[in-house]
Amino acid sequence: MQSTLHDYQQLLADIKQRVRAAQYRALQAVNQEQMQLYWELGRLIAERQHQQGWGKSVVETLARDLQAEFVGVSGFSAQNLWYMRQFYLEYSASEILQPLVGEISWAKHLLILSKCKDPQERLFYTLQTRRNNWTKAVLLHQLKAQAYQKTLLAQHNFSATLPAAQQAPATLALKDEYLFDFLELSAEHSEYELEQALLGNVRRFLSEMGGDFTFIGNQYRLELEGNEYFVDLLLFHRELQCLVAVELKIDEFRPEYAGKMNFYLSLLNAQVRKPHEQPSIGIIICQSKQRTVVEFALRDINKPIGVATYTYTDTLPQELRPFFPSNEELVRRLEAVTTALKGPA
């Protein structure tokens, strides 16, 4: 009897999984059909406007006629028709964006279209939305937090310490600055208070860190020769298949923080890492940093470490503008990021 019940529960779980997968595929198909329709409507309006000089009144008339014909079907307002035209004109002109038309919903496309003007930036958010199944609210938060810029600015030594296959996804796992605007902390707070506040908002913390992070523990105990050491936060990155040690600092980055993290990673690799997992990665999150100091501190470290800062506001500091990559470096970083984003969804 118990065996029969167990077999039934397995069958039920399998059927539920298949139903959910079928529902997801159906929703994807519906979205792709809708996006194809909007793309074609945008193309027709753009062509008529170019060939016959269609203006505002013609599009408004078209909107009224479509709404009268398809009662109860949303999406045919004059404003939305103009958005379709803009979407078609801007995305059809880009080789990297045109193939992504059916990847995310119309509402999310419009959000990216309105907030981003650079094709590479639009590519980043479109693929990240698809990859992490971002809701519209999460996408808006990431746009406000300038996730694209902060990914390009991130400081790490991954190119020197990770295999080529891991470098691109590891780059996506790190931001130059994390936005903890969900925390209620005074200007003067301790590392303990910061850690406890993050633990109390662990879902939002993991969302800000990135879609593939999972939480393992805080003050994770390591032991060597009778001495105890504690990692502030221990996470796991699903795609990278590795442990991620996070150290929280409420002051400016110091070079010795990198040496301490290097030591922690050695212990994690020797004592905690599973045989099938990749080498551990470290992230040091400080209140501030001098970029040149970080660069030299990581130069001869042999473990993969990134150094970031945290803030409560969603504005990229003006003083970071000079550190944006050159055109050549920008292309190289974007290629690495795009390669990672175009991996398995």
Rank of each mutant, 00 (worst) to 15 (best):
L81W: 01
K108N: 14
V30R: 11
T129C: 10
Y88L: 12
P317H: 01
K249V: 04
S105I: 04
L66P: 02
L127C: 10
F182S: 04
R85F: 01
S266E: 13
Q167G: 01
V231S: 09
D314C: 10
L183T: 06
F263V: 05
F236G: 02
F253Y: 07
Y312M: 12
D251C: 05
G306V: 00
S207W: 03
G282M: 08
Y257T: 04
E208D: 12
M35E: 09
L110M: 15
A107G: 07
E191P: 11
A147E: 05
L162D: 02
H276E: 15
G343H: 07
A308D: 01
L110T: 05
L183M: 06
L194W: 03
L162A: 02
R299L: 15
K274V: 09
D181F: 02
F253I: 06
C286F: 01
G210F: 02
T171C: 12
Y229A: 08
T171Q: 14
N133M: 09
S266I: 00
F253L: 09
W134V: 00
E225M: 12
T126L: 08
E177T: 14
Q271Y: 06
D181T: 07
Q271I: 02
T339V: 08
L330Q: 13
M209V: 07
P255N: 06
P304Y: 02
L235R: 06
